[in-house]
Design a protein around this nucleic acid. Structure first.
Length: 414
RNA sequence: GCGGAUGUAGCUCAGUUGGUUAGAGCGCUAGACUGUGACUCUGGAGGUCGCGGGUUCGAUCCCCGUCAUUCGCCCCA
């Protein structure tokens, strides 16, 4: 079978897949709009620097997962691995400092050069929500509330839990980081290979290690709460209070650490156990230093991204396809009349199926396969009387209906 | 990037301890039923057994490589 194959880690979205996909996207868009988040889009690629600077040179995404290429002019470009950096760049490029809070929703394809697995692809799609320019804990709460509403509406909340943690402000985080490096450096020989490299790359990650030896060391490691300054502690408390107020349940996870450099304060993930190792379905956090890193004025921000493919795998109540009405000519003499009727009904907003060929039996079978709600048969008999035979395909009953009454009959159907 | 599993019709899978024409169900298609679907019955099409190489008189089956999928690690949505 040497048929052409899609590139590794990429997938076609055939109509049925696309329907699930679109349902996730449309649901998210509608709910985001209710909370005041308008949709926008940024280009699918940016100068490499935009991602390298914001996500951190040592992050996995930047160090080994970017799809980068050089233009003819010799500039390095990168297919976006996430949405946040691009939206923040756009916020700066368009001088939107005066528009805060800048609340936006976005969606589209992302690219990461990773080993594919279920729920993990090289080209995948994300929905994304950002609230830029709001330092208040209320923004954190709102952003999480949008995520919760989307999961609820998609019917996946039962299999998801919200894990939440704080990484503190820059001061707290660096103090803790230093303490961790000091502690683990003293035990470096006992660390797993992975964690040895984490020690320089992202020491907080060691807390998250699945290695048994590492976990034993983590037991006695410094605790983050001891290093959080007063402001950070109060800020996080306010976020949790806000979630309580809205009845949004969460699990405090002191080991939750995110891989990207730009996160501060609130970090959260909605995780599921139903997708193997790919647990996160919506994840995000606060990134108060990001805009400054990109060369903008210091501006706080918070947001999240959700994996559309992952959500589509879990979504339960995907609406069924629209059921059409089939128009079926009986005999060649009726084809023209049927064609005009089908056209008119479509102009009237009705979804109509009319096959290009076939006798009545074939056409009925086709109508059935497309789960048509009703069939409208027109033959010479009916033509003479300006009528049609209207067959209800669910009930299996039929009657003659005058063409002038057809619209009313169709309206009764639903 | 590292380790394990898998790869036979459009789909889900049998099968061959290496030996003449590789099977089933579903689906597709034609007909029984040239003005009526979902049920039933009878035919038909569709596979160089992922791809390449090796061993062999002979490979879909054994060996090596490769590509893809999948599970775990890393990491993440």
């Amino acid at each position: 079978m040497s048929l052409p194959q899609p590139v590794r880690g990429t997938h076609d979205l055939l109509p049925e897949d696309f329907r699930r996909h679109a349902h996730v996207r449309d649901t998210a868009r509608d709910i985001a709009a209710r909370f005041g988040y308008a949709e926008m889009a940024t280009p699918i690629f940016e100068f490499t620097e935009v991602f390298a600077r914001t996500m951190g040179e040592t992050s996995d995404v930047v160090s080994k997962e970017m799809y980068s290429f050089e233009t003819r002019g010799g500039e390095s470009m990168t297919l976006r691995p996430e949405y946040t950096a691009g939206i923040c760049r756009s916020f700066i490029s368009n001088g939107l400092q005066q528009n805060v809070p800048f609340k936006v929703f976005a969606n589209g394809p992302m690219f990461r050069y990773e080993r594919p697995q279920k729920g993990r692809q090289r080209q995948f799609h994300q929905i994304d929500l950002e609230c830029i320019g709001a330092p208040e804990a209320k923004a954190d709460v709102e952003v999480i509330a949008v995520a919760a509403s989307i999961l609820q509406t998609l019917g996946v909340m039962d299999s998801c839990t919200l894990q939440i943690n704080t990484l503190g402000d820059v001061e707290s985080r660096q103090a803790y980081r230093a303490a961790l490096v000091e502690y683990f450096s003293a035990h470096e020989a006992d660390l797993s290979e992975d964690s040895k490299s984490r020690l320089t790359r992202n020491p907080l990650r060691i807390l998250d290690s699945k290695d048994k030896g590492d976990q034993a060391l983590v037991e006695n490691a410094p605790v983050f709460t001891d290093y959080l300054n007063e402001f950070s502690t109060e800020f996080f408390a306010e976020v949790l209070e806000g979630l309580d107020l809205l009845g949004i349940t969460y699990e405090l996870n002191r080991r939750l650490v995110r891989g990207l450099d730009y996160y501060t304060h609130t970090a959260f993930e909605y995780v599921t156990t139903e997708l193997g190792a790919q647990g996160a379905v919506i994840a995000g956090g606060r990134y108060d230093g990001l805009i400054e890193t990109l060369g903008g004025k210091p501006t706080p921000g918070i947001g999240w991204a959700g994996g559309i493919e992952r959500l589509a795998l879990l979504a339960e109540n995907v609406p069924a396809i629209d059921r059409p009405v089939a128009v079926i000519p009986v005999g060649d003499a009726a084809i023209q009349m049927a064609t005009k009727l089908a056209h008119q009904l479509r102009l009237d907003g009705i979804s109509v199926e009319m096959a290009f060929k076939g006798n009545v039996g074939k056409r009925m079978k086709r109508a059935n396969k497309l789960s048509a709600r009703a069939a409208i048969l027109i033959g010479e008999d009916e033509l003479a009387r300006n009528a049609c035979t209207f067959r209800d395909l669910d009930a299996g009953t039929q009657e003659e209906v005058k063409l002038s009454d057809l619209t009313a009959t169709l309206a009764n159907l639903k």
